[in-house]
């Protein structure tokens, strides 16, 4: 140590005067530091600006839409045919903007997707977290996550090219008429895509259930399955609910699969073999291509976007809240 102090390049002890302990308030270094930190603050605040931008742009355009079409007609109307709005010279040129069939179509496809993803995802998570060898779990978990990493346009292509025709052919021998744009095809493929959203997060929360609970149950003579179903799953339930809500939000907002594999016509039906349309499909069809920006048809897309944003936002807020509460419980 002493040799370092003797080094002529370094100030020796006591070399600095007491005055150097204070820094001029306007020294260049201080100004630079403040400026950089201000800049950092601005960058963080950008996140709020983005949210505000989303809310304001959706709200602004949606309000213009509701100036043309009453809110109640939009939310409770049973007929959706925005295309007629193009023919300004015709009777009924204002189009029909009752979004209920669009909402039910979204629910139908989302429901099918969840019916695929929740059992498969949850059972996979249970198997990987409770039964599989640790090494198998480490290997299979990231492999399953690839399913969520494949671009949705790829799923859409598969749904439209392979799954939908296969379903149609499978239905015909039984006399079931399955549309080639059936809700089933889009829903099934979307379900496969969101398996990892359910399985990965559920696996995490199941893994976080304290081992003491498992041992308590096994020590009473419960089988592994009884322990999982009656002790581990109830303990992990809030986290699993959070995972399912996040997957649901993802399914509702999913666009490309439904654009490519679902229908365009809004039909009020619960039959999964028929073609239905969704909120995201309508947004895309209303906005892609040439458009006049003042027509009710174009603005309707923003009203749908606002609904989509609000619904997914509430799902996310609830899901994140539930998951965080759960983490606090066991950590």
């Amino acid at each position: 140590m002493s040799s370092t102090c003797d080094d002529p390049g370094l100030p020796g002890p006591g070399g600095a005067s007491a005055a150097s302990l204070t820094v001029q308030p306007f020294s260049p270094r201080r100004i630079l530091e403040r400026a950089v930190r201000g800049l950092l603050w601005l960058c963080a605040a950008l996140a709020i600006a983005v949210t505000a931008g989303i809310v304001l742009s959706l709200l602004f355009e949606a309000l213009r839409f509701f100036g043309k079409v009453p809110l109640t007609d939009f939310l409770f109307g049973l007929e959706w045919s925005p295309q007629t709005a193009l023919r300004a010279d015709q009777v009924g040129s204002s189009g029909a903007f009752g979004a209920v069939p669009v909402f039910t179509g979204t629910l139908l496809i989302t429901g099918i997707a969840m019916a695929v993803a929740v059992p498969l995802g949850l059972l996979s998570a249970i198997y990987l977290a409770e039964y599989a060898h640790a090494r198998v779990r480490q290997l299979v978990k990231p492999i399953l996550e690839i399913l969520a990493g494949v671009p949705t346009v790829v799923y859409g292509f598969f749904a439209a090219l392979l799954i939908a025709p296969a379903l149609r052919d499978a239905g015909s021998p039984f006399g079931i008429d399955i549309s080639s744009e059936s809700a089933l095809a889009a829903g099934l493929v979307m379900g496969v895509m969101i398996i990892p959203f359910v399985s990965s997060l559920s696996d995490d929360v199941i893994h976080a259930v304290p081992n003491a609970l498992r041992e308590g149950s096994l020590g009473l003579g419960a089988t592994k399955g009884e322990t999982v179903r009656q002790v581990v799953l109830p303990a992990a339930l809030p986290g699993i609910v959070g995972a399912v809500l996040l997957a649901l939000s993802r399914a509702i907002g999913e666009t490309m699969i439904v654009v490519m594999a679902a229908g365009l016509a809004a039909k009020l039906t619960a039959n999964p073999f028929e073609a239905v349309t969704t909120v995201t499909v309508q947004i895309v069809t209303l906005l892609v291509g040439d458009q006049e920006f003042d027509s009710a048809k174009t603005l309707a897309a923003f009203a749908l976007g606002l609904v989509l944003f609000l619904v997914t936002l509430s799902l996310n807020v609830v899901a994140l809240h539930v998951v965080r509460r759960y983490r606090e419980q066991y950590e």
Binding site: A47, V50, T51, I54, L58, L246, S249, R250, I252, G253, E254, T255, T280, I283, V284, G305, L308, F309, T312, L313, N316, V317, L320
Partner: peptide, 9 residues
């Protein structure tokens, strides 16, 4: 929440 907003929005 922004991380989970649908991309189409």
């Amino acid at each position: 929440n922004l991380a989970a907003v649908p991309s189409i929005v």
